[in-house]
Design a protein around this nucleic acid. Structure first.
Lengths: 136, 136
DNA sequence: ATAATTGCAAAAGCTTTGCACGGAA
DNA sequence: TTCCGTGCAAAGCTTTTGCAATTAT
């Protein structure tokens, strides 16, 4: 059983084949897939898995703190299995999301008066190396 | 004619009553409304305005650089008439979005190798003063 | 006059929900 | 055995699109 799987159990969640598959796909995955992409990727190996199950599972995993959800593009939520502190760079042409180490001095984390900060997200928007200079 | 309106003209866009109304509603608005909220707010004064027009107009204004779109909550895009450099704080309980001045030292703005940065967004997630301590 | 823009309605995505069956513990 | 989780289908939302009629320039 992987570390993530035992973490699931610790959260009081059952370990089903579907959850194993989704966790296994996310593990070490740096593509920041959306729910739909996870579904497509697992379809070959798990033809009966429902898209709703993918959504349900991803929500569970987020609530359990095993993965992060990131919102950089309109119309979809992407998931990141790396829960350590880091930033993201989003290419506005190809849509890819890159991980970035967060610099030590990334600014004060103070909100408005009385605001209790739980997490800080930082996203760089621009063109990735492959898309720089290309039109449209 | 307001500054925003002449800016519209400069972009080669026509100045319609609907666009004036939307610009007027956004001007100085600090609530970061979604398209649906803009539509609801203008409904009384402009009963014939279509929701699609609101969406079209907001997209125009974003492309013209007159407003910013911000994505902090799932399922909707919010708009910010303040295009100056600043950050946001999002209350995960009540959903309100607050403006934050961006500190001078807000970290390096370098992406992956070859990445050309166009803009940087920073969001603090947490509980606002009114929601801190409240349950759920 | 001309072409952009609107309103309306339909459609397209993404995501959630209800419910009966099936499987993990 | 228990009841959580799955699959399926339907519904909910936000957003986009097609097209005829309207209107800014």
């Amino acid at each position: 059983m992987t570390e993530s799987e035992s973490a699931l159990r610790r959260m009081g969640l059952r370990l089903t084949p579907q959850r194993s598959a989704i966790l296994g796909y996310l593990e070490g995955n740096e593509t920041h897939p959306s729910a739909g992409e996870v579904f497509q990727a697992l379809r070959a190996e798990h033809p009966t898995m429902a898209l709703a199950t993918v959504y349900n599972t991803l929500r569970c995993l987020v609530e359990a703190g095993l993965i992060l959800e990131i919102r950089v593009a309109a119309g979809e939520v992407n998931y990141d299995p790396d829960t350590s502190t880091h930033d993201h760079a989003y290419c506005t042409r190809c849509g890819r999301i890159f991980d970035l180490p967060r610099a030590a001095a990334s600014g004060p984390e103070a909100g408005p008066p009385g605001f209790s900060v739980e997490s800080v997200r930082r996203v760089l928007y621009g063109r990735c190396a492959e898309c720089v200079g290309k039109q449209k």
